[in-house]
Design a binder for these strands. Structure first.
Lengths: 116, 116
DNA sequence: ACATTAGTTTAGTTTAAACTAAAGTAATGT
DNA sequence: ACATTACTTTAGTTTAAACTAAACTAATGT
C-alpha cells in the first residue's frame, strides 16, 4: 500500500535511487542497469531490483530472456503529498496536543526499579 | 552538508518522523517527547534525538536541567527540491546516456572465472 | 550533604540490509 | 544436445540500526 516508510526507506539507499533514476524515463534491462553500476555484482543489482519491485517503485516486463524495468512514478506521489503536508505546518502536528494530554494522564511507563 | 541520503535515511524511520512531527511547530523537552512515545525507553528517545541532531534535522537548546528540541525545517528544503527535480522528468536522468556510453566502452567488470 | 529530576551514555542483544561468490533457471544460438 | 546469455536465487559475511537495562552526569530541592 506504499506507506511513507516504504517509499522513504527505498529512496534512502543511494543505490536504489541510482537505479530509479536510470529507469525514470525509459525502461532498461537488468543487464543495462548493471552496466551503469560496475562496482557491484549482477546479483546485488538484481536484489535491489526485486526490493524496488516489491515496494512498488518500479515495474517489470519480461521479453524473451530479458527483463525490462521502469519506474512507477505514481509511487512517489504519496511522498510528495507528505512533504506538502509537512510544509503546510499545522496539519502535521495537529494531533500533538491531544496525544500529550492522553499520555500525561495515562499510566506512566513503568520502569523496573532496582532491586532493593 | 545535509545530503539527500542523510535526510531520506532520517525520515525513513517512523520513530524519527514522529519526533520530528512533535517538534515541528514548537520546541519540546526530551522528557515531553518521551512522554508522547511511552513504548520505548528514555534512552532510545535520547539516542534518536542525538541522531536527528547530528543529521541537522533538529536543534537543541539547554535550559537549566532541560534540553529543548525543535525541528530545523530548512533541512527538508533539499529533499523538496530533489522531489521537484524528479517530477521535473528530464533533468533527473539527463546524465544517463553519457554514463551508459562510458561504461559500455570501458573495461567490463571482470568477474573471476571458476577454477579450471 | 543527600536525594531527586532530567537527561545522556555505555554495553550488549537482536534484527536487518547490502553485498559477494557461486549455483540455479530459462530462453536462444549453433 | 550443448554452450551461452541474461538473469535470479541462495548461502554466508560484514556492518549498522534500534532497542533495553543500567550506569553516569549535572542541576535543583530540601
Amino acid at each position: 500500500m506504499l506507506s511513507e516508510t516504504t517509499v522513504l526507506a527505498a529512496l534512502a539507499s543511494p543505490r536504489r535511487r541510482e537505479i530509479l533514476r536510470l529507469v525514470w524515463n525509459q525502461e532498461l534491462s537488468a543487464g543495462t542497469i548493471h552496466q551503469a553500476m560496475p562496482d557491484v555484482t549482477f546479483g546485488a543489482v538484481s536484489s535491489q531490483l526485486r526490493s524496488l519491485l516489491e515496494d512498488g517503485l518500479i515495474e517489470a516486463r519480461a521479453e524473451s530472456r530479458h527483463r525490462f524495468y521502469r519506474a512507477r512514478r505514481e509511487a512517489l506521489g504519496s511522498l510528495a503529498e507528505m512533504l506538502e503536508r509537512m510544509w503546510d505546518d499545522k496539519l502535521w502536528s495537529l494531533k500533538l496536543e491531544a496525544e500529550l494530554e492522553e499520555t500525561r494522564r495515562g499510566p506512566r511507563p513503568r520502569r523496573r526499579r532496582r532491586k532493593t
